[in-house]
């Protein structure tokens, strides 16, 4: 399973590195979202700083939908799935591989967004441990949900509109826990932040387990 996972993760990341869709489309979109939020709130520094955790996680969620579409598009053609089956790849390994590749992309996006929030919204991070752990766990959970719901929404032309409808309500706990842990990382409330990081960990474990168990059934024809 792990050998297949590394193989698929390497393939997805190589395709992304060569096509540079993430670099030229998703990352600029995420930064654009931050700017648009700032325009809607106005230039008051205190208001922007207070809203920064929510804006960070919303920008991340919206960008995740684009990453999910992209990840599914790589797997989507019948020929790709046929060759995956002919190669005898373990579906759980394919799920884990896609999840790992997407997690790497999401972590890079989070780094960019954190820098953007610090630079544009003037926030000062007190507890980097809380912030980094919540971002890593959220990347894992969101990537698991993205790969699962990408497979659920299938290859139809409706996927672009269907995927956000299916995915975003499921990702609501990540938004809530992420915002709370980010707030804790900005204040001296690291103890409370730990609880929300725990919620993110549970979310990631549950959806990773569901993906490992169900991805094969979803990809069957």
């Amino acid at each position: 399973m792990w050998r297949d996972a590394w193989l698929v993760a390497g393939r997805d990341l190589r395709i992304e590195a060569r096509s540079r869709v993430a670099l030229w489309q998703v990352l600029p979109f995420a930064i654009l979202v931050l700017f648009l939020f700032a325009f809607s709130f106005g230039p008051q520094r205190s208001q922007l700083a207070n809203s920064a955790p929510g804006l960070f996680w919303l920008a991340l969620l919206f960008s995740t939908v684009l990453f999910a579409q992209r990840s599914r598009a790589l797997e989507g053609s019948p020929a790709t799935r046929e060759s995956t089956r002919l190669l005898g790849l373990d579906p759980a390994g394919v799920f884990l591989g896609k999840m790992m590749a997407l997690s790497v992309e999401l972590v890079l996006l989070e780094i960019l967004l954190i820098l953007g929030v610090i630079f544009l919204f003037h926030v000062v991070v007190v507890s980097w441990l809380i912030l980094v752990s919540s971002c890593l766990l959220a990347a894992l959970g969101l990537s698991a949900v993205s790969v699962l719901y990408g497979a659920l929404s299938g290859e139809s032309r409706m996927r672009a509109t269907l995927l956000p409808v299916l995915m975003l309500p499921i990702a609501a706990p990540v938004l809530i826990a992420g915002v709370r842990s980010f707030q804790a990382a900005l204040e001296h409330g690291a103890g409370l932040g730990g609880r929300w990081v725990g919620v993110l960990a549970v979310f990631s474990v549950v959806y990773s387990a569901l993906g490992i168990g169900l991805y094969g059934a979803l990809e069957e024809n």
Partner: peptide, 18 residues
């Protein structure tokens, strides 16, 4: 979302599983 998923054209068994 479930109801939207049901309206996606697919083989009945594939749709039922999803």
């Amino acid at each position: 979302g479930y109801l939207a998923l049901r309206r996606v054209p697919a083989d009945p068994h594939v749709r039922a599983r999803r």
